[in-house]
Amino acid sequence: MKPIFTKTAGLTERPFHYCPGCTHGIIHRLIAEVLEELNLIEKSIGIAPVGCAGFCETYFACDMIGAAHGRAVAVATGAKRGRPDRVVFTYQGDGDGASIGLAETISAAARGEKITSIFVNNAIYGMTGGQMAPTSLIGQKTATSPYGREAATMGFPLDLPKVLTQVKGAAYVASVSVDTPQAIQKAKKAIKKAFQVQLDGLGYSFVSILSTCPTNWGVNPVEALEWLQTKMKPYFALGELKIPATEGGGEA
């Protein structure tokens, strides 16, 4: 019998540790498939964050470096400048990339650093048990916003991909989701494009992916997808927000 679906060679044999209904795993698979399809498994260096994906170096089949919380992009910069012949990517949560590592993200974008960042936005700090994230929504109850995020005192959720469209060195910025099969297809296309932009040496590429955290949102996996669709999708800009200048793109 001809196999119609196999596990991608971009992933190791190790089973994911993610909670039921968490979409980190889907995102891992998409990246791994892209690594395989672009023949990059042996040519890539991935940077793991600190966050729920902090053990992803055991899942991706390429060489991996574990960064400190928020420093993945700086580590990636160091690695890429050391080995410009390699494809270097970061995998980061929203706290990692948009709060403690915000300066690194924007600065690498401004430098047009030829790396790719996969930014997983679940509107919460998963790893540490559900505290408020820079992307938590107004009214969202978290362990550190127990009465709901109040704009007057806690500010507004940061839509980082939208910000990055304003940064010249960011060549490709996409914001996608993995809540439906169609969305997953789109997300994979965006990830592939981001790696291609790096291979073409065009600049920084960034893909934000809306992701679920049923555990810390306090809902079941099905409700989590609904929560993402009804609460997150209306707030965060979606789509290919910036395409390379070579394809007619420019600052938003």
């Binding site: 160091g78 690695a79 050391g82």
Partner: peptide
């Protein structure tokens, strides 16, 4: 902060 982690990345490769 970024500089020392760039060192980390370059040393790691």
């Amino acid at each position: 902060v970024a500089a020392i982690y760039m060192v980390y990345g370059a040393g790691a490769v």
